[in-house]
Design a binder for these strands. Sequence first.
DNA 1: GCTGCAATTGAAATCGATACCACTTTTTGT
DNA 2: ACAAAAAGTGGTATCGATTTCAATTGCAGC
Lengths: 326, 326
Amino acid sequence: MAKIKDVAAAAGVSPSTVSRVLCNGPVSDKVRKRVEAAMARLDYRPNLAARRLRSQHTDTIGLIVSDIRNPFFTAVSRAVEDEAYRNGMRVILCNTDENPDKEAMYLRLMQEERVTGVIFAPTRQMVASIDPQALGFPVVMIDRVSADAATDAVVLDNRRAAAQLVGHLLQQGYRDIGGLFGNTSNTGMERHAGFSEALQQAGLAAPARFVAPSVEAAEQAVLQWLAEPARPQALLVSNGVLLLGAVRALKSAGLHWPQDVALVGFDNEVWTDLLGDGLTVVEQPVNEIGRTAMAMLLERLDEPERSQRIVVLQGKLVVRGSSLTL
Amino acid sequence: MAKIKDVAAAAGVSPSTVSRVLCNGPVSDKVRKRVEAAMARLDYRPNLAARRLRSQHTDTIGLIVSDIRNPFFTAVSRAVEDEAYRNGMRVILCNTDENPDKEAMYLRLMQEERVTGVIFAPTRQMVASIDPQALGFPVVMIDRVSADAATDAVVLDNRRAAAQLVGHLLQQGYRDIGGLFGNTSNTGMERHAGFSEALQQAGLAAPARFVAPSVEAAEQAVLQWLAEPARPQALLVSNGVLLLGAVRALKSAGLHWPQDVALVGFDNEVWTDLLGDGLTVVEQPVNEIGRTAMAMLLERLDEPERSQRIVVLQGKLVVRGSSLTL
DNA sequence: GCTGCAATTGAAATCGATACCACTTTTTGT
DNA sequence: ACAAAAAGTGGTATCGATTTCAATTGCAGC
């Protein structure tokens, strides 16, 4: 494979000049044309490893999520990647499966890659221990931040979104409302907080359960809950994965919404409006989350010393049949 | 950030020795311990760019798909990434949006990255023009290969799968069967071939339509088709994305399956068993596809001269309510 | 105690680009 | 027309690791 020296020889110039052509440095048009012709003739491809080593910038960002198969992360990833490539950056994607060991391992990998920055959806254990200073690159957290995080972040207004769902259920006449939340992420905790507050303000109890963030765990929990005598009239479910589990549970128990139990949740996944009269959900602005995270990372790189910033985005309540009046 | 020289100085050895510790070369236990202590003390992280440049292997593979938001590719990607990381390799993910220009651009990027190999789901236009020799790295194609491809490949037995669906519909008593296929991928073409053959063998017509691979295009096409007087009794839809469009179309037209029209398709997405009595589909072995593709890439790297190999996997017919007897 | 071989270690070259500096040529201003 | 500034070009050092080769050490066998 041709290298810069070969191109230089073929074009009758120095390697420096070829490099300048590559980087849009000052080169006369005549020479630039000759060099470009030589590159084309030799089918030259600059070696990015060499370039990164010498120039000390990798133009690469890390994107660390729990599981790309979660449609929320799929959508966010896609938005991040588009925005990254648009800015001439590469993305390294990592799945942690909510496993703090994997998180640590991938953060280490990011250091070895000398990434320019990282966009990270951390588990609850990890949130507080992320220190961009020690890591050596800026971090933008998404989806699961707490107030004590030391980085920029893009989050949904989880409390408010949960409260909105509760408010909607109250307005529809429901009083016995249960909440199901993921136990590994801060997001679950915040949604739980919003859920509790809203119900307490209404003077109602706020029975909540916490499960591992998997379809199966949610399905089992819901099955069990609905089999109990004190079954809630309505169920609020904290994210799309758990919501799928809840739907499966209702289906296998032969229960229907909203007659047997009303169901509301988070994440406007493609199937939520196909089921019966549709599921009422809070839709997250997934594209905006991804785009914003990438934009914040770029801004931070531009201006490393600016103060920490947290962008809070609002969800959109999408009312469908699963939460109608009894 | 500490470099190998600093570690060497701290441990009182030469950089060569540190490098040997890093690469499990021959080092005495005593020295190895000292070096490892020094690394830990300095929080040393090897610079992968430097390592790649010098060692001439990047341990990185490219994964080029049309859109990670397509659940089929999501699942395959995840499998590829797991298998890659398990073998100490990094993955660079690219979305081409079925756009040949983007495909070319990303292949070029892969050359600049000096990737070890690429796993690629190409558009129909691209399939024949991929030449691993010219590219400089081995390629394993997935999902959309034709007989004239010059690379290793992992594919579903698309003809047979389509024929299976048709056979199932025939057995259930359907005779007017229409097919909807994506017009950008070879996969669509093969499924169409299997569909046509099966119907011709039964002495029946095989009306088929081709659309852009998007939910919207499929929805519109199905709406229009079902509004025509010569509406088919059953519809076979070529992949999960189009299937979603078809479901939306039926819903908005107020039609029900299987009474108004039977519906079968590809890709066992999470929502296919939640709708009514469920959708009959062929499930692709997504994990196996990803794992196998990665494994084939590794084998090819191990043995560059071995003859081209195509692994054909079988889909699994999952019968549900959408295709029951009239 | 000496020889020979294997196991360790170090010195220096190298991977392929960019950065920096110095030098030449061209352009600009007066 | 001349000085000063700007533009264009080449030479060389350098990024941070691995690799190669040579040198040293340790140890077994006699």
